[in-house]
Design a protein around this nucleic acid. Sequence first.
DNA 1: GTCTTTTATAAGACTGATTCTCGAATATAT
DNA 2: ATATATTCGAGAATCAGTCTTATAAAAGAC
Lengths: 160, 160
Amino acid sequence: MTMHALTLNGVNVGADEHAWAASAARALSDAGYRRGGARRAILELLDEQACALSAVEIERALSDRQREVSRASVYRVMEELEEIGLVQRVEIGQGIVRYEPVRQGHGHHHHLVCDRCGRLEPFTDEGLERAIRRLSERLPAQVSEHEIVLHGACEDCAES
Amino acid sequence: MTMHALTLNGVNVGADEHAWAASAARALSDAGYRRGGARRAILELLDEQACALSAVEIERALSDRQREVSRASVYRVMEELEEIGLVQRVEIGQGIVRYEPVRQGHGHHHHLVCDRCGRLEPFTDEGLERAIRRLSERLPAQVSEHEIVLHGACEDCAES
DNA sequence: GTCTTTTATAAGACTGATTCTCGAATATAT
DNA sequence: ATATATTCGAGAATCAGTCTTATAAAAGAC
């Protein structure tokens, strides 16, 4: 059995610090959007996130940092960003939609949800990605995104 | 490249007709639940479904067959069933939670969501399952369920 | 710069799914 | 049949997400 690259707990940010926000801003203006304060504030916030945030969490986080953005704006901006493929919706139980930046290669990840404590952990697995690529080629549909959610007990909860 | 079993569009029911409802009822009573009308009606309905239903759809379907069950009961029962691992939540955009029976082996499937027309199609892929099994062994967590959602354009929408 | 036009934003009303509450109904044990 | 615990139903309450509309800000013209 081959060993693939596997990353658990934490996504490597650092090297290309605000790369996503910058390219996102460019993509937005290329797509014909003007720049507005709310949009910029949301981009900056998202860029710092390693994992997914819900609309309500975004609203709250921004107001915490004295840059209030109305709920409607959050949803509108997230919709625009998703349209252009800059963010991806993630839904993991609880009926709440979360959003996270789509980064190419490094940064792409999936989620493990602990059904006991609710913890959300990102992970990556090349074997899984390969299986998805193969499958996508064989399906009659045009697959553009995929989302994998594992449920179970996280390390901590599994012990007790 | 090996070809795995792949089923699109339609899940094979038939052979073990009401197997799920029966084992589900057993599991429930083992878990200390008494049997009530609402619960039984919901089990029967779910057993007939090939794919996921939302709480509202369940409520409506039951009232269509003259066996009304209150909204609260639907949610309560679904929660109990999920707890015991008899049903699984499926969330595929639209902010609506859907539920579907967990069947072992045949019947186990994932979902392809058309982002244009909203169509929901079940599919299975052994390669994917294998990748998940391998991954699960390597993770420090205890993985009990998994859920894969592919997004894209379905066959019909991809053409136009 | 100033004006005009277009686009973005804020505030809050509104919708619809989900949750909660609590009294009524039903199942089980005796 | 009675007692007791569980389940159920009806509707109120909550909360994420949507829609509307007036205001503010940006881009472009002059």
